[in-house]
Amino acid sequence: ALHSRGANAFCLNRTGYSNDPIVPGFAVDRRDSTNVVSALERLEIDTVIDTIAYTASDTLPLFERLSGWGRRLVLLSSVDVYAAFGRLLGTELCAIDDAPLTELSPLRASRFPYSAIGGRDAEYDKIPLEEAARACAGIETTIVRLPMMFGPGDPRRRFQTVADALVNGRRLSLPRSEANWRMPLLYIDDAADGIAAACLHKQPVSHPLLLGADQHLRWAEHVTAFAAAAGKRLDLSVNSDDKPKRQNLVLNSTVTRTILDWAPQTPLVDAYSRTWMWERELLKQD
């Protein structure tokens, strides 16, 4: 996406491996912030995209080292910073509000939403990382909040159970609370193009940017459309359950779209089709 917009891109990670032949890879360990900055200077980088800021311990030392750097930091954040996401998890104890979320919607009052799970997830929270990035002196910070994403390479394999039902001719049963849930799902190519647009935008943006899809379908609608794009008939049943209604997550990204002159370009049928072909090959290997 960056190359298509005329930028030179480099992949910096611990292995130095880049999975894109036109993007050179360099071995850099983010835990050694001096090593990171040396690489940035050597490569004459003017914009850093932090794709994996996850916890304070692995992110704040790097932000502190970049302070005064005088260039642009693009922090990839998440819609899980919003209070609505906390209501979905049950960590925000207030009534459901299905109003569309914007760049300036209220954030979670609670922190570390997965602390009850333990492990590394217990330290995860994008809110303090956003705050630290904005507080860095001498850096032009851009925050991009991403929704749930899908497509080839998705480690969560959001459509795996659907593809499995299609491959094996099984019925797919969904509880009503899940089937009726509206979710913020964006195809990866469109998310990548939005990130690239944010990186190359000439003017700094004081508020976070929000990438949202054109449509926020219910999960059952996604499932049905996915099957149609695969050219398959899906035996789908929606079953009553006693779970309360889920907090919907609908994004209104009009402001971001206007600022970046960006909108999703991939027709949903193509996004589903490409994801289906990828999932089908993985299921063959399984």
Rank of each mutant, 00 (worst) to 15 (best):
Y17F: 13
I22L: 14
G25Y: 05
A27E: 14
V28L: 10
R30I: 08
A39G: 01
E41W: 02
I45F: 02
I45V: 15
I49H: 02
D50C: 07
A53Y: 07
Y54L: 14
L73M: 04
G90D: 06
T91N: 11
C94I: 10
C94H: 13
A95W: 04
P106N: 08
R111S: 09
F112I: 04
I117F: 11
G119L: 10
P128T: 05
E130H: 09
E131M: 14
A132S: 12
A137K: 09
I139H: 02
P147I: 04
M149Y: 01
R157T: 10
T161A: 12
A165C: 14
L166S: 02
L172V: 07
P175V: 06
S177E: 01
W181G: 01
I188A: 08
D189C: 09
A192P: 04
C199M: 12
L200G: 03
Q203T: 09
S206W: 07
S206F: 02
H207S: 15
D214P: 00
Q215V: 05
W219D: 03
H222P: 01
A227P: 01
A230M: 08
L234H: 06
S240N: 02
K243D: 04
K245E: 05
T256C: 05
L260E: 10
D261S: 11
P267L: 15
S273C: 05
R274N: 00
M277I: 07
E279I: 05
K284F: 11
